[in-house]
Nucleic acid binder design. Structure first.
Lengths: 339, 339
DNA sequence: GTGAAAGCGCTAACAG
DNA sequence: CTGTTAGCGCTTTCAC
């Protein structure tokens, strides 16, 4: 059996209180007994039980990370960074893939609360506003990441999507493009309603175009589901007529890859005939041919800030919430070219 | 505050023992009080504390999943499947990215054992044989997945790499290729020592060639690090002379993508001039142009079996260990063509 | 059927 | 400085 605090107390000829004190480096104990106890603990390979200490009101040093799907490289990357930051602070992260499924979300939340995790990081679309509200009202530590959710006041850190779209516009304009198409992602498969990030990205590129006095043609906006296949099918429209756009901004890399495939099917030469830019700077963007010009999220910084916010929130549930918005960066690669 | 077992006991006018019994559906209680207690629990939104019950010797219903890196699509996919199976059985999974780093492994193991997780699933290369040995000796529930480790007897489920390589060979041979190159992955960056899976895959293709009486030229075996870049650089060798192979088997998709890039740099037409096949059937293989012929692991089944083994092991630490080897499947796409 | 009571391993006053 | 003691929320005999 694993040794308990009693075992080391007996070995060290002290009380369990003393041992507890050296474990937590609290209270006052002579350096001598402290050293002795430490030595004994090492000798016995004693590991304090997080379970027991959690029961006495301490933390479990575990957080839940909610994302839609680990198999999506964008979210996997977020998960990776969050895990690193958590680990650094002594926290474990339990993965919760929600598949954008409202019931899975609730179940996970419930389960993890039974396990007394210390907080949640939500990188999922988090559809269940009801539960979110409950969490916030109970002052349960929660931070939203990579997903702005303007309807609730809570801690969050996200990318400046508007600025990202704006920068893409600037880039394309500088390259001389005057006819620009946008392939944007809907909120939910099958609908025509854009998701928040796409709305912002679109607004950004529009702004850039407006500033340059280049008109945006509404028929050059196409909305589709978030998959390569949907992107491919939906963007065919851009290549059919002869008056198609000379540049296309897809609001994420997955869609952009669909555009690349469609362009190729329509015998377009890339990037000569048409420039394409994506968003997210996922692994995929370096794999497609041509390598995608795209917008990179400040992933590392986002994860760091998110963990920071969560830690702060955990120690002071009443602090004011902050909404942090970080600027993304345009990564120029081979899929864009001067007109 | 969250209600405790005392709160519901008081409400229901019974003892906490009784409540405990209805929670665990153990002991004997009249149906009447049982229903009453259940009703009260629901009314109060009572959730038993996993922490407290874990302290009394019950499980924590949490497992640790070790993988080298979540940002690698192959491992992300494994993680996804494992998470699903775990969730199904009421378990949470905490992610442990080890980066093939022996110290990170140890730290995570230690941390999770302090947290009294119920078991580990190891999909990481798991370098630290020392700790592995300790775990096994202590009869701590552990199963290895997607990674055969023939030096220890333990529960494991993996892909039949030999058969995978064999099938690739058959396919290429059927297509008429007689000159086949292999790009294989080393165990650790910079070395020339193959990792176990690559050894097996190589052995498989060799076997197929031997059976067909097609010689394998040793200079057609190239060993490199596991990255697109290394694959690209190392495979240049295949395209330089004029007597290069007409087909190349890369022992994983990442390498295969490197090969595709190198081929393109050398003005080879794909798949006309050279056929390429990968391994793993990651997301990437459908993104490259041409879409990669590759070998798919029975991911879903692997994860299911792994969870099954772990569950079994948890309830009987002394059962005989089983090593399960599942057959992979060749996925024919556009990167291979008859000679 | 039901409940009293003794822990599980640890923390946090509170005495000494 | 160090030890005693009362919990934390739940499980599990063992009486009644």
């Amino acid at each position: 059996m694993k040794p308990t605090i009693y075992d080391v107390a007996r070995e060290a000829q002290v009380s369990i209180a003393t041992v507890s004190k050296v474990i937590n480096d609290s209270g006052r104990i002579s350096d001598k007994t402290k050293q002795r106890v430490i030595a004994i603990m090492e000798k016995m390979k004693y590991q304090p039980s997080v379970v027991a200490s959690a029961l006495t009101g301490k933390q479990t040093f575990t957080i839940g990370l909610f994302i839609p799907d680990l198999a999506n490289p964008f979210f996997a990357e977020i998960a990776r960074y969050v895990e690193d930051r958590a680990q650094e602070n002594g926290f474990s992260v339990v993965m919760c893939s929600t598949d954008h499924n409202i019931e899975k979300e609730s179940k996970y939340i419930e389960l993890l609360r039974q396990k007394r995790v210390d907080g949640f990081i939500l990188a999922s679309g988090f559809i269940n506003d009801e539960i979110l509200k409950e969490l916030i009202e109970e002052k349960f530590p929660v931070v939203m990441v990579a997903q702005d959710f303007p309807t609730r006041t809570m801690d969050s850190v996200s990318t400046d999507d508007f600025f990202g779209g704006y920068v893409v516009g600037k880039h394309l304009l500088e390259l001389g493009h005057k006819s620009i198409g946008v392939l944007a992602e809907n909120w939910k498969a099958g609908t025509l309603e854009l998701r928040w990030s796409s709305i912002e990205r679109l607004r950004g590129i529009r702004q850039a175009m407006a500033e340059a006095q280049v008109p945006f043609h509404e028929e050059h906006l196409v909305i589709c589901d978030s998959s390569v296949e949907s992107g491919r099918a939906s963007s065919a429209k851009f290549f059919e007529g002869k008056s198609g756009p000379t540049a296309i901004f897809a609001t994420n890399d997955v869609l952009a890859i669909g555009v690349v495939q469609a362009a190729r099917e329509h015998k377009k030469k890339l990037p000569d005939d048409v420039s394409i830019v994506g968003f997210d700077n996922t692994l995929l963007s370096t794999i497609v041919e041509p390598r995608l010009t795209t917008v990179a999220h400040p992933m590392a910084e986002m994860a760091r800030k998110a963990m920071e916010l969560l830690l702060n929130r955990m120690q002071d549930k009443d602090r004011m919430s902050s909404r942090i918005i970080l600027p993304p960066e345009l990564i120029k690669r081979d899929s864009t070219r001067p007109l």
